[in-house]
Design a protein around this nucleic acid. Structure first.
Length: 299
DNA sequence: TGCACGAGTTCTAACAAGCA
DNA sequence: TGCTTGTTAGAACTCGTGCA
């Protein structure tokens, strides 16, 4: 017959989870509304039960022991499941879905489609956060991230959404100002937006156009494709952009893509979330919706 | 600055006794 | 019999302090 060991006090496990996550007794105590001494006591209770230390006490810092490293992921996952079970018990995927995304994806892709998700899930409030850095799911209250990269983030589930292809785009009026853009080299006669962007050098190299000294050319660096796309639409210069983000501008003629040549540096835009939250109702709902939208837009 | 530990305090559960 | 009240022991906490 299967025999289970009695569990240690839930309080001690809760405290261990917080200490392991923060890497600090003091920070865990602050989060849990206890004193540092109480946290120390609870960890000691757990260590006594286990018969092995969970943390290495070093001057000014602690570190998980091998036993602690084995225990921490399982405890974190267990609390995630408890949390999700609680949410489910309260009535399913209610609450707020917090999405951390880069500005261009938010403004040029997500915002244009998010309405259909809201109609399908009226009880779920969506909060979009645009930020340039990679969100830390263990420290920030974020459910889902949309980020660019190669999809290799330990502990995170990643779904490829859009390839980060890039190609030059400009307004029809700017193209007409030089009698039309017929050859890739013609672009060098026009102002380039963010000429120091490595994408330009790669694209010109792929087009067999010598383009030394791009980074020393004058030109504004705006830090986001959304801004550069707007500048290009206004005729301010040629931007190097991802076509998937500017499908509407290309369709209605505000932007033109003079060449079919697309480049890619092995990056893509990814939907990511912690593996442990895979079965969260709100994350499942959003994952199903966005992957459906991606599939529909690529048909 | 951050963790460990001792002393003292508070909280909680278990139990017994009293009462309607 | 079931509920309330008082007592007690142990758990869990805070505070103060020492140490690295």
């Amino acid at each position: 017959m299967h025999k289970t060991l009695p569990l240690p006090p839930l309080t001690a496990i809760r405290v261990f989870e917080a200490v392991a996550r923060h890497g600090s007794f003091t920070k865990a105590a602050t989060e849990l509304g206890m004193t540092q001494a109480a946290v120390s006591y609870q960890i000691k209770v757990l260590e006594d039960r286990l018969g092995a230390p969970l943390f290495l006490r070093r001057p000014r810092q602690i570190a998980l022991t091998e036993v602690g490293q084995r225990l921490a992921p399982a405890v974190t996952q267990a609390f995630e499941q408890l949390s999700e079970a609680y949410v489910t018990a309260r009535g399913g995927a209610q609450g707020t879905l917090v999405i951390s995304t880069i500005a261009t994806f938010a403004s040029n892709w997500l915002a244009r489609r998010l309405g259909s998700f809201q109609i399908a899930h009226p009880s779920l409030a969506v909060r979009l956060q645009t930020e340039p850095h990679l969100v830390d799911f263990s420290r920030e209250e974020v459910d889902i991230g949309i980020r660019s990269g190669r999809g290799d983030w330990p502990g995170l589930a990643a779904h490829r959404l859009i390839n980060a292809d890039f190609t030059p785009m400009l307004s029809p009026s700017l193209a007409a100002s030089i009698g039309g853009v017929k050859e890739p080299a013609d672009l060098l006669g026009l102002p380039l937006l963010d000429p120091g962007d490595p994408w330009w050098a790669k694209w010109f190299a792929a087009a067999n156009v010598p383009a030394e000294g791009l980074s020393s050319r004058p030109g504004a660096s705006m830090g986001a494709q959304a801004y550069e796309g707007n500048a290009a639409t206004a005729g301010q210069g040629v931007a190097i952009l991802t076509p998937a983000f500017f499908a509407a501008e290309l369709a209605d003629g505000r932007l033109v893509q003079p060449f079919d040549l697309l480049c890619n540096d092995d990056h893509a835009y990814w939907l990511v979330y912690p593996e442990t939250r895979r079965n969260s109702p709100k994350i499942s709902a959003f994952r199903q919706w966005i992957l459906g939208e991606i599939a529909a837009s690529s048909r």
